[in-house]
């Protein structure tokens, strides 16, 4: 039971760092909170609603996202998309992620051969 809890918390720690990258990747086209949640879950990226919504606001305040209210539909929704700064940062972040994955795979690959 205790080990299980530890495992869960380690897995969520492992995923947490990648969440920002996943969210940014889906915002090349504007999305609102719930639609983004669905898109991610369709791609088997698990993110809690109570993590995603505050994260969108934070990324916006950091200047990585732009937002606007769409009032044409019956219910007004707040749409987010990458800002210019967000696009540049996403490309850099993606590079860093690939590099890190490569190194990790090399390391773990060697380990499994040993």
């Amino acid at each position: 039971m205790k080990d299980n809890l530890l495992f869960t918390s380690l897995v969520s720690e492992l995923k947490r760092g990648n969440l920002t990258l996943c969210v940014l990747s889906q915002l090349k086209t504007p999305q609102y909170g719930y639609s983004l949640l669905q898109t991610l879950s369709e791609q088997h990226i698990e993110i809690e609603a109570n993590t995603l919504y505050p994260m969108l606001r934070r990324l916006e305040s950091q200047g990585l996202l732009d937002s606007s209210w769409d009032t044409t539909e019956s219910r007004p929704r707040k749409f987010y998309s990458l800002s210019t700064q967000g696009q540049t940062l996403f490309i850099d972040l993606l590079k860093a992620w690939k590099e890190q994955n490569k190194q990790t795979a090399l390391l773990l690959g060697e380990e499994s051969h040993a």
Binding site: Y32, Y34, Y53, R57, R75, R77
Partner: peptide, 12 residues
């Protein structure tokens, strides 16, 4: 936050 959370939860 109230406005945004309202639409998101209503969607959910």
């Amino acid at each position: 936050v109230a406005k945004e959370l309202g639409t998101n939860i209503t969607d959910m």
